[in-house]
């Protein structure tokens, strides 16, 4: 038997396997165990942070499929997210429909909206596309605020508790497993999608759209598909958001949220599933972490407590984003790969 060092693959199939080594399998198993026992030791604050990280992950996955894999920049992701959230809120509160109708419906409605934007935007590229999607976001915000009779406008709309087969998930701790399972499904689906012809077509379009077309990838079909899939993810994430917050309001879905999603995938790593997860968790959790750290410091040095300005927390967050990207432009997933290869090849690091 050959001694295995570095990657040693014998067939193409091995290269695209979901879990490439036994190690990956066991690490993921360990992660699942940790996630499973977490509610026992963590307080609702942590659980809530994980829940919103899950939502962010699903939305970021969607944006990464569109922007990271297919290369179509979108600054309107919050709009699709809002459409999903409102769809769930409206149909679950008006018609008392269960989640297994509401959530897919949110995804589908958002995907339709994605088609609506995707088709006229086919000719657009780069920043022009970004601005067109941003315009769509502004229009959606306007519609949500103005269409009082359906969306309840600026009063916001309440969302009934998610009822899982007769068992109401009325707290974040109870929602937790639901969120984890759905997020895991979303991750697996996205990973699988990228292993198929569709995924490869997306990447081909990103790398050189003209060359892709020459090779027989239908630009129209796949670009529109990317838009639809991405919005579908955003819609599902929006639906989950509605269930977690139990109340949504137009102010939750501003342009800044779109920028935040973009930040997630860039900080995490464009065109990387793992990157979407890292980025989503980073952008959601780090500000809270910094806040906690600051509070800890003021406990250590009570003298500065009155003088301390919370602006420093946010400044530190901004600085952290800059430093990360200056250090590793491929984002967190780049750092991850670097650390991984470092361990894998140790002691022959280079």
């Amino acid at each position: 038997m050959a001694i295995r060092s570095k990657t040693f693959r014998e067939s193409y199939y091995e290269d695209i396997k979901l879990f490439k080594t036994i190690w990956i399998k066991s690490w993921i198993g360990l992660l699942l165990v940790v996630l499973a026992v977490l509610p026992l030791i963590g307080d609702p604050y942590i659980i809530y942070l994980i829940n919103i990280s899950c939502i962010a992950t699903v939305a970021a996955l969607g944006l990464n499929i569109l922007t990271g894999f297919t290369g179509q920049i979108s600054l309107g992701h919050a709009a699709f997210f809002a459409i999903g959230a409102y769809c769930t809120a409206i149909i679950s509160s008006r018609f008392q429909l269960p989640f297994w109708i509401c959530l897919p419906a949110s995804g589908v409605v958002a995907a339709c909206a994605g088609l609506l934007v995707g088709i006229p935007c086919l000719r657009l590229k780069g920043l022009y596309l970004a601005m067109a999607t941003m315009s769509f976001g502004v229009v959606v915000e306007y519609v949500v605020i103005t269409w009082d009779s359906v969306t309840k406008g600026v009063r916001g709309i309440g969302v009934p508790t998610l009822n899982l087969l007769g068992y109401p998930l009325d707290s974040n701790n109870k929602l937790y497993y639901f969120m984890i399972v759905l997020t895991a499904l979303a991750i697996i689906a996205a990973t699988n999608l990228m292993r198929t012809r569709v995924g490869r077509a997306f990447i081909a379009i990103r790398d050189r759209d003209i060359a892709a077309e020459v090779m027989g990838v239908s630009l129209t079909q796949y670009k529109v598909m990317a838009f639809a899939i991405s919005s579908f993810y955003a819609g599902i994430a929006g639906g989950l958001y509605a269930y977690v917050m139990e109340y949504i309001h137009p102010e939750h879905f501003t342009f800044l949220l779109s920028v935040q999603y973009l930040a997630m995938i860039i900080v995490g790593g464009l065109g990387s599933i793992l990157g979407s997860i890292f980025g989503a968790v980073f952008i959601t959790v780090i500000p809270e972490f910094i806040k906690g750290l600051a509070q800890f410091l003021t406990l250590l040095f009570p003298a500065i407590e009155d003088k301390y300005d919370d602006g420093w927390n946010i400044a530190a967050f901004g600085l952290l984003i800059m430093l990360f990207l200056i250090f590793e432009p491929k984002g967190l997933s780049g750092i991850w790969t670097r650390i991984k290869t470092c361990f894998k090849n140790w002691p022959y690091t280079y």
Binding site: Y45, Y48, M245, Y247, H252, P287, G292, D310
Partner: peptide
Amino acid sequence: WEDDEFQAPKSVAALKKLIHR
């Protein structure tokens, strides 16, 4: 005093932190 940056998700997190931490 917790800063919520005028965003509902952060406000929810802040209240959970205040209660449980």
